[in-house]
């Protein structure tokens, strides 16, 4: 990290190197989002990490998003998307690499080969959103219990609401508690 090279433009370099992988580039609020082809995302990440002038050497976050009720558009061709938030310690700047994931084949190649930090972040996405990472060394659930059914953060999964206890339904709710609110008072 010692030799100071001039920071290069990641978008131009990427378009040059992977002309067909880069789909489009979006700017919003001073943040650059590069949307890339799902199958090539690992090569893109490696390229961003190792190329002189880019050196995005820190993986900040991997996050997922579910566009569920919205119909697919040209900008958002699939239901899910996975974003990699990279940071360059040398040049102090960030970039977001985003890839769209179809519902019927919700898999992305794993980034654990690029950064070890991706391990748990990807496990979390598999657990919460149900996007599987191919080649992941330890694809277990991380937050939910191992026997949990479904992926709670998908937008078609309900929040899981329980009825709130009021005086008119108190008896019904107390029925399914082992000892109700007054249960400890011995007769």
């Amino acid at each position: 990290m010692t030799q100071q090279t001039q920071p290069a433009n990641p978008v131009e370099l990427l378009k040059e190197r992977f002309p067909e992988a880069v789909k489009y580039v979006k700017q919003f609020a001073n943040e650059t989002t590069i949307v890339v082809e799902r199958k090539q995302v690992i090569e893109v990440l490696k390229f961003l990490r190792d190329t002189k002038g880019l050196l995005y050497n820190f993986l900040s976050d991997i996050s997922s998003v579910d566009y569920y009720p919205d119909p697919p558009t040209e900008q958002r061709p699939e239901r899910f998307a996975v974003s990699y938030h990279l940071y360059s310690l040398l040049y102090n700047r960030r970039i977001r690499v985003k890839t769209f994931v179809p519902e019927d084949d919700a898999t992305v190649p794993t980034a654990t080969t690029v950064w070890e930090a991706a391990n748990w972040l990807e496990r979390e996405i598999w657990d919460m959103m149900g996007i599987f990472f191919e080649g992941h060394p330890d694809p277990r659930r991380v937050l939910m219990p191992a026997d949990w059914d479904g992926h709670p953060l998908r937008r078609d999964v309900p929040l899981g609401y329980e009825t709130i206890m009021f005086s008119f339904n108190v008896e019904e709710i107390l029925k399914h508690k082992p000892t109700g609110k007054e249960g400890r008072v011995s007769e």
Partner: peptide, 12 residues
Amino acid sequence: GFSAPDEEVYVA
């Protein structure tokens, strides 16, 4: 409540 655009941001 107020509405926000259909965009994404990351703040650290």
